[in-house]
Amino acid sequence: MKTDDLIIALTADAGRVRRPMDVVLEWLTVAACVAAALVFAATIGPRADIGEAATTGRFLFKFVVTIALAGSAFWLLLRLNRPGAAGRRDLVLLAAAPALLLLAVAAEFFSVPQAQWAMTAMGKNSFNCLTWIPLIGIGPLALLLPTLRHGAPTRPALSGAVTGLLAGGIAATFYAANCTDDSPFFVVTWYPLAIAMLAAVGAAAGKLIARW
């Protein structure tokens, strides 16, 4: 087939445009949040003393970190799905949530006696954290991965990993409302491990499905 013939065929097909990529990603992200909320409400639910906890800085700061992660991952995914839009500088944004968390960890070194550091980091909920964040996040990940087929990511594995981070950020936001370990020491020890599982699944899936 000549290229000019192909152009004629493409032109005849001009009327069939799919929904804009960013709109689809936005809606599926909303759907992912709803899915996470449903699983969370049906299983572990918020901790019993959430009203009291909500007055403490440590509890609230967990949400600053997890929402920062979800927000930066969403924004980056929007750019990764658009050819030519994501540059190296955009990747720096992913460091926002870790940087916030490390600042809190640094502050925690001064407010917690050294003898309790290890105990605070281990916490009581490490197994819960490593189980529930992936369990809450897998549904959102399944909802979000198709955006890689709808969009046009030129870096499939990276885009899949960022999709996993977005699902992980959403899942961690809900899990944090249940977990009674609020110290940044605990968060920095266990949350990244749990979220990394979702990112790894996302990266592997991205390589498989994001071919176009």
Partner: peptide, 15 residues
Amino acid sequence: QETLLAIHLKRHTWQ
């Protein structure tokens, strides 16, 4: 030809 097809099928990703 591959690029033209890709551009056509992914034109909803253009900003």
